[in-house]
Design a protein around this nucleic acid. Structure first.
Lengths: 148, 148
DNA sequence: CGATACCTGAGTAAAACACTCAACAACAGC
DNA sequence: GCTGTTGTTGAGTGTTTTACTCAGGTATCG
């Protein structure tokens, strides 16, 4: 499993913030309830997202969290890399600083390098705004099929 | 990290077997030495590969392991899935038996489903024979640059 | 029979994961 | 300026996975 709950929860939370953008700060308890995320765990994810510059938080009563920039300016790749660290599927890819790739031994590297490049390109092409739009679309579908 | 050492070591071992196909059984100690894999750990990987039908083993003196079918008939996808289980990047994809996909909550599923499909197709298109050929090519390159 | 190999399952140290808890800091409103 | 509400931080913890090792067992060849 490439993604842990951090990447999953973190993106869910960001979708929630994007959906309520322009309505003032959203409290973590609301996010946690709506997106089914443990509240005390969400704290740490929001802290990571704030440090990475995606979220702005305000304290005190009627405080909360909101997007630090428009949802269309946030792409899924940068978001996930902020939450998860590297998304490299193998250890050999993206070697540690000061080392060279040890390609001589790991014979499947070249395939995974291609897959990794494609994956990153695809993720970079998806914005948070698109994710929200997709969710809205999905909700409409659900309502229609419910009415039939 | 999508792949653990199992997938890495296992494929290395299979490349080694493919390279020495037709020369009789290869002993695990030789594989372990050439591919830098802990020998006692390699035991379990070979057992998995045998149960999955990729490797045939013979006991006794001058025993060892060899491919159960031609290297061109083995693709990287089936090999890695035998070693690692599912390669799904998210938990939500490929839900447990008897469950439906919980797409309503996880808003990035559709992107990952696309990436996962592409990934599997790419892996299925690469055969073990190609991996061996690639390694041979790489060795030739290394020798040439050494001679210059 | 005995040496040589594979085969199997139990065990284990270390890391990662998925959280929880407690103490603290800031701000709003009275 | 006090109080209560919210966010902030770091330490801690139980569980699971990883990456092995080890001790025995079994088949086979000579």
């Amino acid at each position: 499993m490439l993604l842990s709950t951090k990447g999953d929860y973190g993106v869910r939370a960001m979708i929630d913030l994007a959906k309520h953008a322009g309505e003032g700060p959203v409290q973590r308890s609301e996010i946690a309830r709506r997106r089914q995320i443990p509240e005390s765990y969400l704290d740490h994810l929001l802290a990571q997202l704030r440090r990475a510059g995606f979220v702005r938080s305000t304290r005190g009563p009627s405080g909360g969290h909101e997007l630090a920039k428009p949802a269309s300016d946030i792409n899924l790749l940068s978001l996930l890399e902020a939450l998860e660290g590297s998304l490299a599927p193998l250890g050999c890819l993206e070697p540690a600083v000061g080392e060279e790739a040890t390609e001589s031994i790991c014979g499947q590297n070249w395939v995974w390098q291609e897959i990794y490049d494609e994956m990153r390109a695809r993720l970079a092409a998806v914005s948070l705004a698109e994710l929200v739009e997709h969710e809205r679309e999905h909700e409409r579908q659900a309502v229609i099929s419910y009415n039939i």
